[in-house]
């Protein structure tokens, strides 16, 4: 409409410019914060192990914030979308001392060029565009490769020279070697539970990282997390945490994976907006966890015992 002031409804950021401005809520389970900080300063790559939804990603976000650096999240699936910004300048130093964090959710079609970059056709020629990993290496970001074992084998080899003393990224297609920025750190996550033997992490890869193990938080801690994240009363949060504890007892006895804190938070969020607790747990926990009808019934009975 003429005369109306144009308003942008979304923000477009360069991969390496995304910064977590607000402190993510994170309650340490142990000394993981200290370990990560030390690893960061000592430039030791970190492997985060743990079941799904136990807070690995949140931990990395929190650490990125703590280390006061911008955080970059990109999903390779967005490649078809509009190109994001220009090729970054070689010397791109943000005003604050910041560590961007590139989160890449790995999937089985993720190839090396998805990470490093590729040529695009433009006009009469081609133009090189950096992949998220390259950007992270340039800008000294924390690059977080989520579920690394899902990616193709060639990607894991790619990270080898980055994760030892060399800290370089060869970009064959352009014929260059990229030295990593001092602030660069590679973090990968890995869920040892449900990968088949085919998809195990190779030792040559995994022995380049220190490993921090994550488990579901203990009941009291989890209750606090649920209370904060879902905005429910301490009583409800405590019951949800109790449900979590009980359902996790069934892992390997009907369930492949215990219920994640994330799901419990979802259940809490539903309850907070007035969904009856039993129903909320049914959709957020029981049905989300399993399709096996007898197991569903058993868990529903546990829910029915805990919630009125």
């Amino acid at each position: 409409m003429p005369g109306t002031k144009r308003q942008t409804l979304y923000r477009e950021l360069r991969i390496e410019e995304y910064v977590v401005r607000d402190e993510p809520f994170y309650l340490p389970q142990g000394d993981e914060v200290q370990l990560f900080e030390t690893a960061y300063y000592q430039k030791i790559p970190v492997l985060l192990k743990g079941p799904t939804g136990c807070g690995k990603t949140r931990f990395v976000e929190y650490m990125a914030y703590r280390l006061s650096r911008p955080l970059v999240v990109v999903k390779p699936a967005e490649k078809d979308g509009p190109p994001v910004g220009e090729e970054p300048a070689e010397e791109d130093t943000p005003s604050r001392r910041s560590i961007p964090l590139v989160t890449v959710a790995c999937h089985e079609d993720l190839t090396a060029s998805d990470l490093v970059g590729r040529y695009l056709i433009e006009g009469e020629g081609t133009r090189w565009i950096d992949g998220p990993l390259t950007r992270a290496v340039r800008s000294g970001a924390i690059c977080y490769l989520d579920e690394i074992v899902e990616a193709r084998k060639d990607t894991t080899v790619l990270i080898h020279p980055l994760t030892d003393h060399r800290r370089i990224l060869p970009i064959e297609k352009r014929g260059i070697l990229l030295e990593a920025h001092d602030g660069f750190l590679l973090v990968i996550s890995y869920n040892p539970g449900y990968q088949s033997a085919l998809k195990d992490l190779k030792h040559s890869t995994r022995q380049r990282f220190i490993a921090i193990e994550f488990t579901y938080p203990p009941k009291e801690l989890e209750a606090k997390i649920i209370e904060h994240e879902a905005g429910v009363s301490p009583e409800v949060a405590w019951r949800l945490a109790k449900l979590g504890e009980k359902v996790r007892n069934l892992k390997e006895h009907g369930l492949q994976e215990g219920v994640s804190t994330r799901l419990l938070i979802y259940a809490g969020k539903l309850i907070a907006r007035g969904i009856p607790p039993r129903r909320a747990c049914q959709v957020a926990v029981v049905w989300a966890l399993t399709d096996d009808a007898p197991v569903q019934r058993s868990i529903e009975e546990v829910v029915a015992s805990i919630f009125e």
Binding site: E245, K246, V247, L250, H253, G254, V295, S298, E301, V302
Partner: peptide, 15 residues
């Protein structure tokens, strides 16, 4: 029985 077994296992946290 199967239902109860899982229920009890969940509660007790043991086999």
């Amino acid at each position: 029985k199967d239902l109860m077994r899982l229920y009890c296992r969940a509660l007790a946290g043991s086999q």
